[in-house]
Amino acid sequence: MLVIQQLVNGLMLGGVYVMVAVAFTLIIGMLNFLNFTIPALFMFAAVLMYATMMGQLPFGNDLILSIFGMEYRWVAGIIVALVVIALASLVIERFTYRYMKAKYGDATEHALPLVSSLGFLIIFEHFVVSTWGSDPLTAVSPFGQGTFSIDTIIFSVPQIVSLLLSLVVVIMLSVMLKATKLGRALRAIAERPDTATLMGVEVGRIVPVVYVITGLLCAVSGILFTINYATVDAYVGDSVATVAIAGMVLGGLGNVWGAIIGGLFIGMLEVMSIYIVGAEFAKVPIWGLLLLLLAFKPTGLFGHTLIGKGKF
């Protein structure tokens, strides 16, 4: 029974990883680079959610309190986090992709987006450290600790809701990719950006959309993280994103469904490793698996062989 309980916990943790893994996989699939602003955006959304809920924003706390009242400040938190992250994504897109693309042709040729995105990671982490300090910040969950149990297995209601929510968001995304005009344009860019341009896809207008979508995925995931685990700090993005990267590779780069399955699997693997070999050793199975996978089957479970063939 304890094992099943651990599996359930792993599945819940996997729900957090799924969205971050999908964000990574979208950017790699479309634009062929490892976007290190994703951990930053995840962390920033989680911290903004905390700050709005607890009245710790640098400014505007009274305004939010007067509009939403004590009860519904979590709604304000969601709005603030989503809006700020969407705007930040647009700024990031300018400096990691658009400008470089306009100036140097293929932006991914020079490892430019990678370095710029690391620059943004530094900016966001130190912004949070200098505003809220580097100690863990503890929020009070607006939904309490509601749980129910089937047999002896305990389910936490907020966690189930967020797992379902994250799956719904991701499934909507993959339907969008498959069925809509925007999705077709995105897939065309992923396949071959130059041909897509010739076919009348406006790459310059679609790429910001990709950034905003991935940014919002990170934001939703960060908000759910704050609600469920209540404790955030400036470096929470690093630990979550590194595991999400493992999940993404497991599923295959550029494959949304792969990222979902990989994220859930890695969540369970992490919880089971902590349960079986202890927290200190839990890193080894996850990263050992990833290393073996990259060496022997780099396309992952459902990956596409074309992705990641670029220089960086």
């Binding site: 590194t242 990267i245 990833l290 060496a295 990641g308």
Partner: peptide
């Protein structure tokens, strides 16, 4: 491995 995969593989090695 190349490109993104090399970055990920070396990173995984460091974590192991």
């Amino acid at each position: 491995t190349r490109g993104v995969y090399m970055v990920l593989a070396t990173f995984a090695f460091a974590e192991v």
